[in-house]
């Protein structure tokens, strides 16, 4: 963990791979890690909006996933995110869902999920 920024330098998940020779990761330094976390929240939010969920960074060490009514789960990484999203919404989060694809391609208005 970086003593200044407090961001953990990567766990076992492939999206947070620890920086070592030959490995592609955005964990190499604290600035890169922080930038990637902001980017990750924005990218995931594009999909999570379909389910009425909101993702936010929490202390640069975890993420908080919340429903519109305030139910929340703490998630460590993208791999954990989807199981938590399914638990909160009570429905499968399927990347093949035609409605989700319509939403991503701009053919479905907010609330369509």
């Amino acid at each position: 963990m970086c003593a200044l920024c407090g961001v953990l330098g990567g766990g076992g998940d492939w999206t947070d791979a620890a920086a070592r020779p030959g490995v592609f990761t955005r964990n190499a330094d604290s600035l890169q890690r922080r930038r990637e976390r902001i980017n990750r929240v924005a990218c995931a939010q594009r999909v999570l909006g379909f389910y009425g969920l909101t993702l936010s960074d929490w202390q640069a060490s975890s993420f908080v996933l919340s429903t519109l009514t305030g139910k929340s789960e703490i998630v460590d990484n993208l791999t954990h995110l989807w199981a938590a999203a399914e638990k909160l919404t009570g429905r499968p989060c399927d990347p093949f869902d035609p409605s989700l694809i319509d939403w991503l391609e701009g053919r479905l208005e907010a609330g369509g999920g």
Binding site: R40, C43, L78, T79, W82, E86, C93, P95
Partner: peptide, 14 residues
């Protein structure tokens, strides 16, 4: 990052 969002979602469900 978006590729990671997609692949993690795909692998979680399928």
């Amino acid at each position: 990052t978006m590729f990671g969002v997609w692949l993690t979602m795909l692998l979680n469900r399928h």
